[in-house]
Design a protein around this nucleic acid. Structure first.
Lengths: 355, 355
DNA sequence: GCGAGGATTGTGAGCGGTCACAACGTGGGC
DNA sequence: GCCCACGTTGTGACCGCTCACAATCCTCGC
């Protein structure tokens, strides 16, 4: 059934007054009866300006509604104070929260924030060049394969910081980067499930950020915990980031009665798994325990509420900005804030075996 | 229980080669043995350049790795090709999806996209001025009170388009705007519930975007549907956008046995309501039907899956960009794409009264 | 009362592009 | 063979601001 809605467009506002070009520092200078350089001094807070002159200039600025032209400033001074975030996604919770942290930090520091999404179809180099052309710095969200590829292609001369899944040994040129200890968090989550009496833990993975044979951190932590307990890790599943992918993986796992505990690479996957288990008639947590990753806002409100690993994406974003700023603004002293550690949040979706 | 994780920082990459200033148009000119103006002609595809000269210049561009300085171009030409989105939020589904649509459209058109978040603490005028200072256009997401206030303060000379909850009659200067027919959608959703046999429908509202006495569109549609059916609208509840707010509202509604159908201002609220009903032992949809708004990605995967009104935020974002572009690039012909109409998506959370 | 030195102000140049226009060739029409 | 139009290229000024430096003013100490 369709709602018979429609979408409409508002009319254009009439532009009554003429083009009314913005006032320049020379206009202000003329109005105040000083040279343009004095105006420049005033707007930059230079100390050696006579109080009375400053007042006159300020008054002229007020009446003319002068605002310094950002473009001209950037060109003449070489200072840009802008950051462009390169990411493959802006909607998934982890990305959106990271972006939020980046935005807050950059706003607080007076930086302009730009966003450019990279897709597999895009020419990475073109996209990166476009981002670098703003003159400012670049922050790459390298949580996935596209992001990681983008990071590798940022030219050496472009100021850049990165958010990555894990430190990347041997990568050159290496860039300042932030990451959370996903491996340790996954290990702790897995150990928690084992401690509840589950004989093994199945893992539904998020897509890897690298093409290498090395396991992604979350998978690696899961594997380590199992092996430490003398359990052979079962095959992993998962072919995407979203709940649909989780549902597909969950359908298969639900058929296997040996599956009593499932760790998921993120909360969306976990949601899909929960749904598949429900369809298969397997109760959570009585029959199967499920743990997610990220602690998305809605995870506390689904039923059963989702046990998950809370990630400080927000803090990660702020830290990444700090790392970039350190390159852009070298006499900037504030060190980048350190993100909170991943934390296992216990809720209803996990419980003892055969509860 | 805490995961003993930690967060670490990567080392700085060594900057081996010198500053290596980017090549300018004059560097290219010298290398190719022509004047800077000829180089300018080549990079702008001017017709009257001898083929052989063009090749020589192109070669010099290649070897020097020249890229036209975007700042200088903007200053000299007055053309900016950039959009700044002003919004109060980037994470909530409706906002994030709108932002995504805006990003895609601007990327496709070769525009740079900036984002500035406005908060109640911010000086709106400063924030807007900062956005306008980029020289490009501004898109305001005016779904809420802060966004709507920001829209009203955009100076008349700044190119601007808006996304609003509903057309705002009598607003001057009015700006080109897009909106969806929320009122009609809410009416249809409410009628659907009534048609299922529910004697009344309760409404959990999202915060209003205006301070006026006029009801928000979703609330208005709900009210109209009830009145058309001869039902006096019960008091509304809701004090926020998120699931927690929905949970609070839901707790109260759950105590009232007359409540058998609840319409929610968005899916997050609905999730909270669902949770509260569950805690109160009221089954959905057997005892109570719940309908959300927006069709967030996870709404199809919660249990019970959520009946909701799908909104084309993505299309709305694209359309808003089109409206802005029409102002910025006047000889641009492509008309803005028209967003899809809101659609009621029937799922498990709604059903006949006393099923 | 005079020079040194700091405070205050103004001038020139340049950031890296664009625009306007002038200055060269060429060729065709008479 | 001359003139003019056109294709091709170069020069100057400028976008709005910053830098470097020079010029002016004032004040103080001796």
């Amino acid at each position: 059934m369709d709602v018979t809605g429609h979408t409409s467009f508002g009319g254009h506002g009439d532009p009554p007054q003429g083009p009314q070009k913005a006032a320049s520092i020379r206009d202000v200078a003329a109005a105040a009866g000083v040279s343009y350089q004095t105006v420049s001094r005033v707007i930059n807070g230079h100390p050696n300006v006579k109080e009375e002159t400053r007042k006159r200039v300020d008054a002229a600025i007020q009446t003319l509604g002068f605002r310094r032209n950002a473009t001209a400033f950037a060109l003449a001074s070489g200072v840009t104070r802008s950051v462009t975030v390169i990411t493959s996604n802006t909607v998934l919770y982890g990305y959106a929260a990271t972006l939020q942290g980046l935005e807050e930090a950059s706003r607080a520091a007076g930086y302009a924030l730009g966003v450019r999404v990279v897709t597999p179809e895009d020419d990475l180099d073109r996209t990166i060049a476009a981002a670098a052309d703003t003159g400012g710095g670049v922050v790459v969200i390298g949580f996935d394969a596209i992001g990681a590829a983008a990071l590798d292609r940022v030219p050496a001369h472009v100021p850049c910081a990165a958010l990555v899944e894990a430190p990347r040994p041997g990568r050159t040129p290496s860039r300042p980067a932030v990451w959370a200890d996903d491996r340790e968090a996954a290990r702790a989550a897995t150990e928690h499930l084992l401690s509840l009496g589950h004989e093994t833990v199945h893992y539904v993975a998020i897509p890897a950020s690298t093409g290498t044979r090395r396991l992604a951190p979350r998978a690696e932590g899961w594997r380590q915990a199992l092996e430490a307990a003398g359990v052979t890790p079962p095959p992993t599943s998962g072919k995407g980031w979203d709940a649909q992918a989780g549902y597909e993986a969950g359908k298969k796992l639900a058929r296997n009665k040996d599956v009593t505990a499932i760790l998921c690479g993120n909360d969306d996957l976990a949601l899909g798994v929960l749904r598949a288990l429900h369809h298969a008639g397997r109760r959570v947590p009585e029959d199967v325990s499920v743990i997610g990753f990220d602690d998305a806002p809605h995870s506390a409100f689904v039923t059963p509420s989702l046990t998950t690993v809370r990630m400080d994406f927000h803090g990660l974003g702020r830290a990444a900005f700090g790392l970039l700023r350190a390159q852009l603004d070298t006499d900037q002293q504030e060190s980048a804030p350190v993100p909170a550690e991943p934390t296992l949040i216990l809720r209803e979706s996990s419980g003892p075996r055969d509860a």
